[in-house]
Design a protein around this nucleic acid. Structure first.
Length: 676
DNA sequence: GGTTGCGCACGCA
DNA sequence: TGCGTGCGCAACC
């Protein structure tokens, strides 16, 4: 749960901004809170994230940019307009402390979302939207408390209301059949939405249960320097839009740009063009691209179902067989093998790249998750964090890119949402998740992992993730560093993706083989800022990651990593770094490098970082954390996801240190297991 | 330079 | 026509 104090501050800030007719975007909120209360922007963001997940604050895409709304007020509004649904509000909502303040009205929840939803879905079809969502206006706050509410929300309502949640977490709602809540607003503005970057402070999260998981996962990256982080800024191309926002705004809004450009979103397809005005849930929508991608999306969606099913089957099998150890790690190979054995699948051509792409998408959606080591696994409640993290990471990466383009200014990142999710799948997943959530709630024990959050996470992030992950189509803009092949996979066999062997090429940049290219594309997509890729936007907020994020505990990690650390990379900031241990614990992957062993390339960690930077992958470079210990250097990748994205480029380094990687992987794996 | 106030336009109901 | 929203500009600190 969010801290009451922060909740108040944030809501107050949002109200204040609104009252002065300023867009309550992440930057402004963070700035104002900092100014007024001295709160750390990262923390503010984290809290905001929590509030979003709690639906105390709604994250909406309005006029192409992300805005945050005081759910209570919004709801109120909606109520007036539509109906006052008694139920939701019912006390539960109030449960949240805040309610008191906001509560008064609260509960409708949707308003903001609904708006968004409407847009997305179809602009006006209230009913349709309403139907989906149920209209239930749960008060955001309540979310946590009442299980049912949450579920409903997520399921039905989400679309609209959820928008918020979706946006924020990205998740939940999204999953719901339609797109997620996150909608992108892509509307006329064409801007991409800025993302909210939520970062989750790990520290904070730890407190909070709910989101913690999610956040933490995400957290990893924080790029943001100071406060908000970074983000992406946007490069909005907007068509003229006003893009100029002040810096703060700029960051947020800027992203918008291409909104139209290339969204992959399915959701948007049907919809009419969004009007600028309504806030939407963030989703990526894209019209044009959508049509193009539709076919492929469908196919992939289908494949996605099978993939998920495959993972389930494989997971079950492994569990059955390895009760003690826990599920065996699943990699692309295993999944491919399984799929190939399945009837029907044979017909299709399941290329590795294709499966991988779909896999990524599913991971993004939250239907599958990637372990720290890069293995594929089913999402688990505990894992909630993982998904989000992925999302967040992606967003973070996007942000970084954007930031580069635009400026270095730190800010939040927008998440791109994709709406690729298929309704059916989502529904199934959601149902499953909801059940889990309910159970948890009943139990109460894990209050921390608030169901709501969990659900939200899942859903939301799914959306977002998907969007990015999938779109392979986009050409990789950035140069790819050449990589050496690494055989790393062999041992640890981290997920194929991660370890995918690559050709050996000079680090300096040579060309990449097709496989690599595909992978890179995927990676790039993930990383790509909305503007470059899809017009849509995202929402997640991923935040940043500050330090600790996720910390799940893993003693093992510490052991391996533990050491005094010093950042080699210029970019790395102490703050980001955090204790090496933490990082490791957070799920970061450490690549241990021994100084002399970099041959034949003879690179040092710093060289690797520099290399990436020089090749145009500064973001990746940033993703590393380096440490030197006793003459040995450690390359830390904040997240598994990140690692995956970078794996190609890191090929050489990974290869060289394969051994280390293995060890680390092992450690991580254990963590995951425990986590699960 | 940052913050705040507000006119105005936009889109929706 | 009313309302919510927020851009963009001016004023203020």
């Amino acid at each position: 749960m969010s801290e009451p104090k922060y909740r108040d501050w944030i809501l107050e800030t949002i109200d204040s901004l609104r009252s002065r007719k300023a867009r309550p975007d992440l930057e402004r909120i963070c700035r104002m809170v900092r100014r007024r209360h001295g709160s750390d922007p990262d923390r503010t963001r984290a809290e905001l994230e929590k509030l979003i997940q709690e639906q105390t604050v709604l994250k909406v895409s309005y006029k192409g940019s992300i805005s945050y709304r005081n759910a209570a007020k919004v709801q109120r509004k909606s109520r007036k307009k539509s109906e006052l649904t008694p139920d939701r509000s019912s006390g539960s909502g109030e449960s949240l402390g805040e309610q008191a303040k906001h509560a008064t009205f609260n509960n409708n929840g949707d308003s903001a979302h609904s708006l968004t939803d409407q847009e997305e879905f179809g602009d006006k079809d209230p009913e349709s939207t309403g139907a989906r969502q149920n209209l239930d206006p749960h008060p955001p706050a309540q979310t946590l408390a009442p299980a049912p509410a949450v579920q409903e929300r997520s399921e039905t309502i989400l679309p609209q209301t959820s928008g918020n949640s979706c946006v924020s977490c990205g998740a939940t709602d999204c999953t719901v059949g339609s797109g997620c809540g996150v909608k992108a607003s892509a509307p006329k503005d064409k801007r991409l939405m800025p993302q909210a970057g939520g970062k989750c402070d790990s520290s904070d999260h730890s407190k909070d249960t709910n989101k913690d998981d999610v956040c933490d996962a995400a957290s990893q990256h924080n790029t943001k320097s100071a406060g908000c982080g970074e983000t992406h800024s946007p490069s909005r191309e907007d068509n003229g839009d006003k893009a100029k926002k002040t810096c703060a705004s700029a960051s947020s809004s800027s992203s918008s740009s291409s909104g139209d450009v290339g969204n992959n979103n399915h959701l948007s397809r049907n919809k009419p063009q969004p009007t600028l005005t309504k806030p939407k849930l963030l989703r990526v929508g894209t019209t044009r691209a959508a049509s193009e991608n539709e076919a492929s999306d469908q196919a992939s969606a289908d494949l996605g179902d099978r993939l998920v099913e495959s993972v389930r089957s494989l997971t079950e099998r492994s569990r059955a067989t390895t009760a003690t150890r826990g599920p065996t790690p699943l990699g692309l190979k295993e999944i491919l093998g399984y799929l190939s054995t399945q009837s029907g699948l044979g017909e299709e051509k399941l290329t590795r790249s294709r499966v991988k792409a779909v896999l990524e998408r599913e991971v993004a959606r939250g239907r599958l998750r990637r372990t720290h080591l890069g293995h594929i696994a089913l999402p688990t409640r505990g894992m909630g964090a993982a998904k989000p993290s992925a999302r967040l990471l992606k967003s973070a990466l996007q942000d970084r890119q954007l930031a580069k383009k635009v400026e270095v200014k730190p800010e939040e990142q927008p998440m791109v949402v994709d709406s690729t999710v298929t309704g059916r799948e989502r529904e199934e997943e959601e149902e499953r998740k909801e059940k889990e959530v309910k159970i948890e709630r009943k139990v109460g024990g894990e209050a921390q992992v608030p169901p709501a959050a969990g659900t939200a996470e899942v859903k939301g992030h799914g959306d977002t993730m998907v969007a990015k992950a999938v779109p392979p189509s986009s050409p990789s803009p950035t140069p790819t560093p050449a990589t050496l092949n690494h055989t790393v996979k062999t041992e640890a066999q981290p997920s194929d993706e991660v370890m995918e062997p690559q050709k050996v090429s000079q680090p300096a940049g040579s060309e990449v083989n097709q496989v690599e290219e595909e992978e890179e594309k995927m990676d790039i997509n993930d990383q790509q800022p909305p503007d470059t890729q899809d017009p849509v936007i995202m929402v997640s907020d991923a935040p940043c990651l500050t330090s600790s994020v996720a910390t799940k505990s893993c003693s093992g990690c510490k052991m391996e990593v533990g050491v005094s650390s010093c950042l080699l990379t210029p970019t790395a900031s102490p703050r980001d770094m955090g204790p090496s241990e933490e990082r490791g614990m957070n799920g970061g992957v450490f690549v241990k490098v021994e100084s002399g062993s970099m041959n034949p390339v003879d690179w040092t960690v710093a060289d690797v970082v520099n290399y990436f930077t020089s090749v145009g992958f500064a973001e990746q470079a940033l993703a590393f954390r380096t440490q030197e210990i006793d003459g040995k250097s450690l390359l830390l990748m904040q997240r598994n996801d990140v690692l995956t994205g970078l794996s190609i480029r890191l090929g050489p380094a990974l290869k060289i240190y394969e051994r280390h990687v293995k060890v680390l992987q092992k450690t991580h794996f254990q963590d995951d297991e425990a986590f699960c």
